Simulated assay, not measured.
Amino acid sequence: MTALTSSIVLLSMVLWLPSIVLAQERVKLRVSSATKTLGYGPLWIASKMGFFEKQGLDVDLVVIRASDVGIQALAGGSLEIAGSASDAPIAAVEKGLDLVIIGGIINGLTQSVMAAKKFKTYNDLRGATFGAISLTSGVTFALRQVLKVKGLEYPRDYKLLVIGGSPQTYAALAAGSIDAAALSLPLNYAAEEQGFNEIGRFVDVIPNYQLAALSTKRSWAEKNRPVLVRVMRAMAQTMRWIHQNKESAVDYLAKEMNLKPEHARRGWEFYTRTRMWNPDGDINVDGLQVVTQIYWEQTQSKGSVPSAAKYIDQSYLREALKDLARR
């Protein structure tokens, strides 16, 4: 082999090396979403529009309906990250599981109590059957608190029928299988257009809340810190893109979530204006404290209510944001 040929071979190896390293660094992750609705849209944008891929992450995003089921899958090792209602990881930690909340998805309550035409007020709902995704966690967790504040106790004053997430519950309401449901935005718009009554909005009763969040195992997070930082970097970039690209975000979400464009537009405007989609993907710590307080009351747990800090670790997101600031 001549010196020239050797140089060419060596140069070729050097040029190919970054690609080889990148290929070795690509990480497969299993991530869940409690439902496929507008509120969880950032997860689908991160997965389908390449934000995870740009961070060298091969993400398998799956829907696991009912937040408590998703958290069980996370604890059992079937997932690396779970997108769920925030009360579910709190409950898991209180049962001794090694879980932690690392970022926000939906930083507030967007649901409305929607009911058949004969129901006009909360008091009218005594004896009604509500559709729900679960008997305890997720939206049902908040629904029970809203109804309690309005003087309705479960199971004394109403029934809960497990059906599924907002799309399935809306279909049951439209079919007359249930009397009422907590519908997330923008399905409440669709229900109104069909003649159902809006009894009230959750946010008017519970103004500060952390509805949905990303969780993982603490032990896995500690061993895979660089990977988790890349995940949070992708989520921060996704949230920023959503806030900065209204028309593209609305168009994608309308198609991916099978929504009317006007409903997707109104939804985008609400989520961004209220910052229920946090621009950095951060957690609403004060809202999580409210979730903790309600959890403590509903489960009749002993002792003082813990600080929300017990359940979260924002260091992965903080490191991701520092990385983005340097670019």
Rank of each mutant, 00 (worst) to 15 (best):
Q168N: 10
M232N: 06
V14D: 07
F270Q: 06
K322Q: 12
V229I: 14
K148F: 09
T238V: 05
Y158C: 08
F270A: 14
E297H: 06
G281S: 11
T121E: 04
G281T: 04
S307E: 11
I20M: 14
R327M: 10
T238H: 04
A308S: 13
V162D: 05
Y311W: 07
Y40Q: 13
S67D: 15
V305R: 05
M114R: 04
Y311T: 01
V229Q: 01
L29E: 13
G41A: 15
I133Y: 00
A92H: 03
W296I: 09
P167E: 09
Y170C: 00
S137W: 11
K246E: 15
Q145V: 01
V21T: 10
W296R: 07
P226L: 01
L321N: 03
F141G: 02
A236R: 03
T37K: 05
I242V: 15
K260M: 06
M257G: 13
V290H: 01
N258I: 11
G195N: 12
A236G: 03
S7F: 09
V146I: 06
A85K: 00
P89N: 10
A249Y: 05
V63I: 15
F130G: 02
V205M: 06
A88Y: 04
A116L: 11
D87K: 02
I101G: 06
K117S: 14
G70R: 03
W44N: 03
S307V: 05
T110W: 05
S7E: 11
F196D: 11
A116H: 12
R65Y: 08
L152H: 07
D313P: 09
L15V: 15
I71W: 00
A174L: 15
K48L: 10
L185W: 13
R326P: 00
A91C: 03
A23Y: 14
K118S: 10
A213G: 03
Q300V: 06
